[in-house]
Each structure stands twice: as C-alpha cells, then as structure tokens.
Design a protein around this nucleic acid. Structure first.
Lengths: 183, 183
DNA sequence: TTTATTTTTTGACAATTGTCAAAGAGTATT
DNA sequence: AATACTCTTTGACAATTGTCAAAAAATAAA
C-alpha cells in the first residue's frame, strides 16, 4: 500500500500526530535496516529510495518484498510474532526512512484507541495486497507475472537489479532475462 | 488462523458478545455461500465442515483458499473493496457456518471502538499467514509445498479432492498425483 | 449388486523453468 | 583510459511441471 495515500485512510490531523513521533533517518545504499537472526520490532516507511527484504536459501538470496517511496516494509516474520527473523532488510539506494517501533505503536493505540481503526484499515489493505500476490502465483505464468509487475510498478525496473526482481517473481535471473528478450 | 484460538485473542466476554449476534446456519455439500460476479460483504466462520474459495480460469477452477473447523473464509477480493468478486465460495462437505456481515461488524466497531483492537489482531494473524503462503511459492518446490501441507494441515487430505489441493498448491492434479507416488 | 458418475492415476510427449559455465555489457575505481 | 567489479545475457543441457487422452479406482445412485 502507498502511504502517499495515507491521507485517504487516516485523517490528516491524526496522521501528522503519528508522524511527529518519528524522526526521519538517512542511510546509504546497502545499509541494513535489519539483520536476519535478530528480532525486528520496527516498521519502516520509505520516504525516498528503495528497500528490499530478502532471505538466504542455499547460498542464494531471495527477495521477498520491495518497497519504494510511500510504501511500508519490515521483517514481517518477526514484528508481530517477536520471533527471530529469517529476513534481512536492505537499502537498494541511498534512502530516507521513517522507522516506527511496532511496540510503541501498540502502546500508542493502547492510550488512544481511536488509532486502532486506522491500523485496522492499513492491515486490511496489506492483507488484500498479500492475497493479490498469492493469486499471481496461482493463476499466472512467470511471463505474466513479469508483465503485471511492469504494469503495476514500472518504476522498479530501472532501479532494482533484475536478479532481485527475478527472485521476487519466483524465478531465476536467467529465466527473467529470456522472458524479457521475447516480448 | 483458527478461531478455536479466538479465546487467545479476544477476551471471552467480548467474543461471545460478537458471536451472539450471529446465527448458525447449516448447508449441504456443494452449496454456494457466495457466487462470483456479485459483491460479497460477509465473512464466514466454519464451525463444522470444509469450505473453499475458487476462481475460474480458462474453464478450469483454481482453489484459492480452503477453510475447515475454526477457520475464516470469504471472497477477500470483494469484502473490503466492495467490488464484484471473481471468487465463488463453496462447501465441500455438509457444513455449519457462522456468517458475519463485514458492514455490520464495521458498525459494531464504530459503536464499540474497543472491538477495533481485536479486529486488528485478527488481521495481523491473517496477514502473517498470507506472508507465509507467499514464502512457500518463493522458496519451495511443488513437492516441498505438498509436504508442508501434509505437516501443517493433514486433515485436509482425507476430506478435500486432490484436484482442489493441487490447484491450491499451484500445480496440476497430474503433477500432484506423481508427487504423491514418489515420497 | 449393478450401473453410473466422479476422482485419481498413468503414459507419452511438450512446454516451461532451472542449472552451470562463460561471454558480454555496464559501472565504478584507480 | 585501463582495470576491476558487478550485472545481465546467452548457450547447452537437465529437471520440473503441464497437456491431453485414457485407464483404473473409488464413490454414489439405481
């Protein structure tokens, strides 16, 4: 979901109240916001730049999620369960990031229950997006998934290595290269 | 997520307050709780039986989700967006179903904001489950996905046609048959 | 039980995708 | 510009998965 549309969900006065709690941080390309094997309790909002989540499997890394301007990213396997994460969160460009401790966010919701609703609306959106991605794997071939990505998130192509895009689509870099050759 | 564990999330007094709003309905096998092309604003909690969501693609039907006792199911592409759904929701056994209008649930949360928190917790769980399923497609082969299903939801095997399980795993029935032959 | 219907398996073959090694192209560094 | 380094493409081949048709097995209906 895109938080440039946050105003479409959270009333601006509330949104700014949350945002004022956060401090914007800048990090260089390749910086790791979170490392695998540790517990992650932060959610990151990308203000500028691109961030990916990845996972090592048999030496190779597989990109699980990619977030650009206005989007959220975190080690989802840890932030809710508070278990050690298998994911690493890495910057693909010099980026400006807003970090939110989910624990603090939960306290905030405890104090001001009217925030709960907006968190619910955000989770509804995220859940819907997840369902769409599952659908992609069920219904579409590698080529169709790539074509869909071009349509829905064309800006990623110029900014993210094809190897990362390939694993994000569930295919190898070589296969993606061949898909791109035969349009 | 399993609503037999609902008590682990929603305090029992609140949960029963919600549940008392609902009336349990029984339907025979093959009954459709929801038909594609219409708007779905209900969420179904399976008390007894098995329910699947499926989608037609080029004549074949692809199972998107399967819910058994204690689990939730709905046409997720419609219930939040209120767009016409591409999914049909079908009973695979004679079942007992609790139906909740999501619109009514939203009014309930409007009136009693303390419900918001529990809805958020439910959505957190559902979102995490969705993320796990995406991971399955990124990291695991068809055989590994099948082995995982046997481990995590063994009861589905005796109760759901292998054709439905195959499409749920993103493969054809023939491939699943061969996978099962070579353990 | 017998017949009909549905579900599952199997075979032969095709299409897709993966693997490994190497070449080519693009960027950054000296 | 020359070198090193990273990213992308290509080729040859293997493995996985899909397609279509038919048989076998299981289940439901008469």
């Amino acid at each position: 979901m895109n938080f440039n549309n946050l105003s479409g969900i959270v009333p601006l006065d509330l949104a700014s109240e949350i945002l004022s709690l956060l401090e914007k941080q800048k990090f260089p390309k390749n910086h790791l916001l979170h490392k695998q094997g540790t517990i992650c309790n932060h959610i990151y909002l990308v203000e500028k730049g691109i961030v990916r989540t990845f996972f090592y499997k048999e030496g190779k890394d597989i990109t699980v999620h990619i977030a650009s301007e206005g989007e959220l990213i975190t080690a989802i396997d840890s932030v809710i369960s508070l278990k050690k994460s298998r994911y690493t969160v890495e910057l693909l460009e010099d980026s400006e990031i807003l970090a939110i401790s989910y624990i603090e966010l939960q306290s905030l919701m405890e104090k001001h229950p009217h925030y709960e609703k907006y968190m619910r609306l955000i989770l509804e959106q995220l859940y819907t997006e997840g369902a769409d991605r599952i659908e992609e794997f069920l219904f579409y071939s590698a080529k169709e998934r790539y074509d869909n990505l071009i349509k829905t998130r064309p800006h990623l192509l110029n900014r993210v290595n094809l190897g990362h895009i390939a694993s994000y689509l569930g295919i190898t870099q070589e296969t993606l290269s061949r898909i791109r050759k035969h349009p």
